[in-house]
Design a protein around this nucleic acid. Structure first.
Lengths: 210, 210, 210, 210
DNA sequence: TATGAATGAGTTTTCATTCAT
DNA sequence: GATGAATGAAAACTCATTCAT
């Protein structure tokens, strides 16, 4: 693999980290899968950790971007904006299932990188979601609730399907990598927004899943 | 550490697997923390994997038990039974945060043990939850929805706080290891049951968090 | 396995040493096969080496005895005595194929025990065979040849089938553990004695196989 | 030891396997003797077994070659061809006493490699020897006998001196690593061919030891 | 006489990393 | 840029042995 070594390494590492976990994957495994010399990984990413950091970065750069894009709809109403955020994240995760799963797992560890990610990207995530919720409460779109508890639930709903791909395939027989699934699941989260978050008889507008 | 080596090993390993992950923890680390000779781990659990398997077993034996206990309330209504299940699992997880987190992370990997766990314990979990939901639908307590999608959301809500302890502490400043949190969070899930799952103006009975 | 532990250990160890070699067999393997506690082996034989020594002893005590018995026929002629020795050793080895193979292999190593065995039992073996051959030469039964070269060839003929049991089974399809084989093979060695060792037209008396 | 690590490892391992047996030799011993880093062994041979496999291969490749060369003389008569085979093997073994002994010992175990060796190299060996013997019988050079029993005896005669080097040195005081020994011992096997295998008054042609 | 627990030393193996080319 | 060789450190695991009971 001449020429596009760097990209091949990233692809291979996402795949293997996803399957075996970061610690369970050796640099040689990655090199072999990427058809690249192991020394190349040090060359491009300094060391194995650098590779993981890179994965974190490419994930969260886009992740936050998707949230920001959804937040852009805030003027059209909190519920609409929140739904847009949900839709964007779901589609993004759906298009990057391997990377997503690896990130969701690895972020549950207590490491240096994770702390850094939290103090940057996840702080931003919280910021935007909080603003949407608070705006919704002020506008009496949403019930009066704690934004952090809402965020917590929202993240549970958003991430679980991608963390437990095997479970979905083998126990529930639901295929998270089919387009149909995302669309349906997005609508389920909308129901949660409408049924739990929104004032009883208020705005139940559905945003079409484009 | 003569006498209670086996138990000490389990305690230490739950702790370390939780913090550093299974692969990130060495047998020596465990032995040192348990104040035990490393060879003892092989003696009691055959090898490192056996130790992880043991962790899985002690978790899921109790986990399924909690579900079964909640299922026992089925005669009092599907919503009540489901709420009881939620309450039981939440309290169980709250009392075993370390073990829970380690299991939730490790089960996202594609390994032999995980497949076995799925085909036994998680199949049971699905069975009970499905029965509750189907009963609720038949009794017109619940809206007509796909049980598997409900299960998926429910599991997202139930597990996420325990998988992402650091996130909760450092980003949301919510403490999942305080009693107050569980009580409140249980009520949040009840709201989801009432608002999303239940027929609009039907049974909104709250089961007191004992 | 109460009561007859010691014997069970010996049986198991002969079997396992034979299959996996001395170093390739662990004390636990032996204990498991003998259905005995590993500590028992230390109790009866001091340590693993003691067990091997025991095997050597039970083999060579009988081995030398068989030679001595054959040597007892010396008065009836050197060829007859030598044939009797051949017959005795072959039958003894045939009745103890496992033990024989293990000994033949292990004696090719350069260890303390082996040196001791050589300076006792194999010296005796040489002594008797030499005396038979020298007597045969003096009596003009045998051609004039170096006794040591004869011994060397004789041992090659006697031992090879038992060292290479697998080879015989899987390549030559000759079964060394069938009675028929020993009888025939003994007659082959007789031919060697008659054709190579004996004077051309002299005594070709065949000793009937028992 | 930069530069020729691989070869140094092989040399050291032949030496040590020979003296202490495969299981009795540690990878560290080999690395120390070869003045090489232990990890290098894994690098070149995957693992300890790979090293043994390599030893088997380099032995048997040459071994079969020597037989094939001797078989090339078949047109000049079966006895001549067989004697050439004997001579070739003896000289080859004499020039590789360490390797030979190690192979002869290790092949008496029941392992995967051994089975593979048998189904390839030793099958070939049998094939060539059988053809020579059958040809000899048809041409009435040889007595009518079972080729497999002949092969068995022949192998006993050929290999024993190299398997039991210590025995020869310390009991028989015959030095198998002196040129004189091989020459004499080859002639002894010729006698066996002439006296046991050949028709009484037929071809007793001696093939000069090169 | 027999055993289960425990251990220390040693084994093979893995791995991230370095470096000369 | 890219590579194959080489390595030190550490990993998991094995094992003979000891010992209190």
């Amino acid at each position: 693999m001449k020429g596009n070594a760097k990209e091949a390494i990233v692809r291979a590492s996402i795949n293997l980290f996803n399957v075996n976990g970061f610690h369970g994957t050796s640099i040689r495994d990655i090199a072999k899968k990427a058809k690249v010399n192991p020394a190349n990984i040090a060359y491009y990413f300094d060391n194995k950790h650098g590779l993981l950091e890179h994965c974190f970065t490419i994930f969260f750069e886009r992740y936050v971007e998707e949230i920001e894009n959804g937040y852009g709809f805030i003027e059209q109403g909190a519920a609409i904006s929140l739904k847009k955020i949900v839709e964007n994240i779901m589609i993004f995760q759906f298009e990057n299932t391997h990377l997503t799963r690896l990130i969701l797992r690895e972020i549950s560890l207590d490491t240096q990188i994770v702390r850094e990610i939290m103090s940057t990207y996840l702080m931003k995530e919280r910021y935007y979601i909080n603003r949407v919720i608070e705006k919704g409460i002020r506008a009496e779109e949403f019930r009066h609730t704690s934004p952090d508890y809402i965020t917590l639930q929202l993240k549970g709903l958003l991430h679980m399907p991608f963390l437990n791909t095997h479970y979905m395939n083998e126990v529930l027989h639901v295929r998270p990598n089919e387009k149909y699934f995302v669309e349906k699941y997005i609508r389920e989260i909308y129901k949660w927004i409408d049924g739990v978050l929104c004032q009883s008889e208020y705005n139940k507008a559905y945003v079409a899943v484009n």
